[in-house]
């Protein structure tokens, strides 16, 4: 261990490295939003009476839960253009890959939350005259949203962590910049430690935000 720490390089290049957070965040946030919306829709579909909707949800979840994110990302960014002629920016490809993967995980989280709502809730709502869709919209989903929040936070954190694989298609987020700087200055320890600290801070901040949402719940299950 005769490596000499020179965290001094971070005073010069830290701001550039930290600037990668901006890209990390703007890849994460749309992915988190899409993950959540798709996850809810897929969970609702998985409870439908129409077998085609149930089947779609099942295949989707099984496919994107098993596909490694790196494979999915490379496929969307490099293979899809060959097949369809549509090529996307690295950020767009990343958002799609992370959302597809995240949606499969979020669907499972929501489904667990929905299944935990007693069936008597749906019966009470149906007895009032609510349609199946309204039961979901007004009674089961809002309750499941709160019970699912902690596991949804975990899914979101997974999505944010997955942003680091976008280094492979040159999204200029923190890891990409750490790599860039390391090649230039041969200071891997400083730059990668800096990258680690930045991601920890981002995820920690996000988790705190989600925790504060949990405190918004004014009701308790009975």
């Amino acid at each position: 261990m005769d490596y000499k720490f020179q965290f001094g390089v971070l005073t010069d290049y830290g701001p550039y490295l930290a600037g990668g957070l901006w890209h990390a965040w703007w890849t994460s946030l749309p992915s988190i939003v899409l993950t959540t919306i798709l996850g809810v829709v897929l969970a609702a579909m998985s409870m439908s009476r129409k077998w085609i909707l149930r089947g779609f949800s099942l295949v989707f979840v099984d496919l994107f839960r098993t596909l490694p994110v790196v494979v999915l990302l490379i496929w969307i960014h490099y293979v899809m253009p060959i097949l369809t002629g549509i090529s996307l920016s690295p950020t767009m490809s990343s958002i799609i890959a992370l959302s597809l993967n995240g949606a499969a995980l979020a669907c499972e989280a929501f489904r667990g939350g929905l299944e935990a709502i007693p069936t008597t809730q749906a019966q009470a709502a149906q007895s009032l005259g609510f349609s199946r869709w309204q039961v979901m919209r007004y009674v089961t989903l809002p309750q499941a949203a709160f019970t699912t929040l902690p596991s949804l936070t975990n899914v979101h954190i997974t999505v944010i962590k997955n942003v680091t694989v976008t280094v492979l298609i040159a999204v200029p987020e923190v890891m990409f910049r750490a790599q860039e700087l390391t090649v230039q200055f041969f200071r891997p320890l400083e730059f990668y430690t800096g990258a680690a600290a930045l991601y920890v801070a981002l995820i920690w901040g996000y988790a705190l935000f989600m925790r504060s949402l949990e405190r918004l719940q004014k009701w308790q299950p009975i």
């Binding site: 008597t120 809730q121 019966q123 009470a124 709502a125 149906q126 007895s127 009032l128 005259g129 349609s131 199946r132 009674v139 809002p142 309750q143 709160f146 009701w219 308790q220 299950p221 009975i222």
Partner: peptide, 25 residues
């Protein structure tokens, strides 16, 4: 049909042993 069932339920109130109030409202 679902439509007819809904009509029947609209004119039928049901009170359960365990109340089944919506806890989030």
């Amino acid at each position: 049909s679902q439509d007819t069932l809904q009509k029947i339920r609209l004119s039928t109130g049901f009170v359960f042993q365990n109340f089944n109030l919506f806890p989030h409202m």
